[in-house]
Simulated scan of single mutants.
Amino acid sequence: MAIGNGDMQVYVYKFDNTYIEITDLISSMKYSCGLDKISQQLDIKVPYGVYGTSLPAMFFDTGQKVEVYINSKCYYRGKIETVNMSADKENISITCFDYIRNLTKSKVVYNFAGISAYDAICTIFKDLEIPYSEGGILDGKNADYSRVIINHLIKNKSAYDACMMIATELHRNTGLFYYMFMDVGGNVNIMPCDYYWSRQTIQACSSPNLPNPDGTLISLNYKKDVSDLITKVAVYDSKGNPVDIEAGIPNEDSDEGGDE
């Protein structure tokens, strides 16, 4: 399947680690990720024959690994979380998430005392079997800020929130902000902001009509809306008299109301 200036291949792995390529079967595919939804999501739809043999009948199961390659370079690794087969439409849809999903969905309790930030995060990752590399956790165990001592009770928080609470402790000591991402090797990392994507310049395309955009900024929309802007707030008591907000008492100049 051609995409932009390259070729894309999509593979689904069976539980015995053999794989099948489904690239040519895909009727639609959507990728999404954001700061408020840190785990990368991939939605794929393929035909699924129910009433005849003209369509393939390739079934998928939750937990299977999915990988996406562009020009032989891996751009996505994740696992199937949802399978939805529609008999009347003869298609099957799968929703996949990368390995950060396990961190956002798992509730944890830890009482860290006298442990380095690096070891604390590694403990969480190991307990949940999250793949990581030594250099991808706070720039390695020998980095100055990874050795900050953590004394923190973490209770009934997601594992992702627990990691970011540790990152907040580091921010107080170093002034650096941290973020979590999964690299193309399948490892989950937590690093200082802009460490991974530093020096990436936003550059507009030379023309909006290019079949293959030559810039990093594909589209831009700007909106400024004051339709819901509140410019004045008035408070009245139970008798309908205006209340002095700062003093919290009815305005002396107002009519007391009620019976004399």
Rank of each mutant, 00 (worst) to 15 (best):
L210V: 08
I121F: 05
P211W: 10
I149V: 15
I121Q: 05
Y118I: 03
I218S: 14
D144F: 11
C205H: 02
N111S: 08
I154R: 07
I150R: 05
W197K: 14
N156Q: 15
S133Y: 02
D183Q: 02
L217F: 08
A162L: 09
D161E: 15
Y110G: 04
E81S: 04
A117V: 03
V188E: 00
N111K: 13
L103T: 06
F181W: 08
K107D: 02
S198W: 00
F97C: 04
Y179P: 00
S206T: 11
K141R: 14
N156C: 11
D98Y: 03
E134Q: 05
G140M: 10
Y145S: 03
K157L: 07
I115F: 07
R172Y: 14
Y118Q: 11
T168Y: 06
A167K: 11
M182C: 13
I130R: 03
L138I: 00
M182E: 12
T104H: 02
Y132S: 04
E169I: 14
Y110D: 02
S116F: 01
R101S: 09
A162G: 12
M180Y: 06
L217N: 07
D183S: 07
E134T: 04
I137E: 01
N142K: 08
Y118R: 04
R172M: 11
G186M: 03
Q203R: 14
I94Y: 13
N156M: 03
E81I: 13
L103H: 07
E129L: 13
I149R: 09
N84R: 13
F125M: 10
G186D: 12
P211K: 12
V108H: 02
Y110F: 15
P213D: 00
V184R: 13
M191K: 08
S219Q: 10
S116K: 04
K105Q: 13
Y160R: 03
N221Q: 12
Q200Y: 13
S219M: 09
A113K: 15
L128H: 12
E90G: 05
Q200M: 09
I154A: 09
A87G: 00
T123S: 15
I166G: 11
K105I: 09
G140V: 02
N111M: 07
L220V: 07
T168P: 00
V188C: 01
M180A: 15
S133E: 11
A113V: 10
K141I: 05
L153D: 10
N142F: 06
G140P: 11
P211L: 01
N111T: 08
L170H: 01
W197F: 15
G215T: 06
G136H: 05
D183F: 05
N102I: 09
E169G: 01
L217P: 08
R147D: 04
R101C: 10
L103Q: 06
H152S: 07
I150G: 01
F181S: 06
I166F: 05
N102M: 02
R172I: 04
G114A: 01
C193E: 10
D119N: 15
C163W: 12
D183V: 02
L170V: 08
R172F: 05
D139N: 11
V109T: 15
C205V: 08
G136E: 07
F97Q: 09
Y195R: 15
N187H: 14
G135N: 13
C205N: 15
F177C: 01
K141Y: 14
S198H: 13
D119A: 10
I137N: 03
I150A: 04
L217T: 06
F97A: 02
S206E: 04
G185K: 08
D194F: 14
T123Q: 14
P192M: 01
K157G: 00
F97W: 12
S206Y: 00
